[in-house]
C-alpha cells in the first residue's frame, strides 16, 4: 500500500465531511420536512399536494436517490485526488 499515514488521515477527514454534509440534507428532508415541520409545510400548496405530505410520501424518496448519486460522484473524485481508487 503506497498511501502515507498523513494522506490516509486527510482522506478520512474529507470523507467524513462529505458524508456529514449529505446526511444533513438527508435528515432535513425526511425527519425535518416529512415529520417535524410537516404541519407548517402543509399550509403550502404544491401541485395539488400539501407540501409536507408530498415530502413525507414522495419528495424525500426523490431526494434520497439524488443524494446517493451526488455522494458517488464526490467519492469518486476524492478517491482520485488521494490516489486511493482501484
Amino acid at each position: 500500500m503506497s498511501i502515507t499515514q498523513e494522506n490516509a488521515t486527510a482522506y478520512w477527514k474529507e470523507n467524513l465531511r462529505i458524508i456529514l454534509s449529505y446526511l444533513a440534507i438527508w435528515f432535513v428532508v425526511s425527519y425535518g420536512c416529512g415529520i417535524l415541520f410537516i404541519d407548517e409545510l402543509n399550509a403550502i400548496p404544491f401541485f395539488g399536494f400539501k407540501l409536507g405530505f408530498w415530502f413525507a410520501q414522495q419528495g424525500s424518496i426523490f431526494v434520497f436517490c439524488g443524494l446517493i448519486v451526488a455522494y458517488v460522484i464526490s467519492m469518486n473524485k476524492l478517491d482520485e485526488k488521494y490516489d486511493v481508487h482501484e
Binding site: I19, Y22, L23, W26, S30, G34, I35, I38, F53, A56, Q57, Q58, S60, I61, F64, L67, I68, Y71, V72
Partner: peptide
C-alpha cells in the same frame, strides 16, 4: 397500510428507502 392509515404511512415509505442512504454512506 397507507390506504388505511393515510399520512402516517409515510414512516414506512421514508424508513424503508432512507435506510439506503445510510447503507451507501456509512
Amino acid at each position: 397500510i397507507i390506504s388505511f392509515i393515510g399520512r402516517d404511512g409515510a414512516a414506512y415509505l421514508m424508513g424503508w428507502t432512507g435506510g439506503y442512504v445510510m447503507l451507501a454512506m456509512l
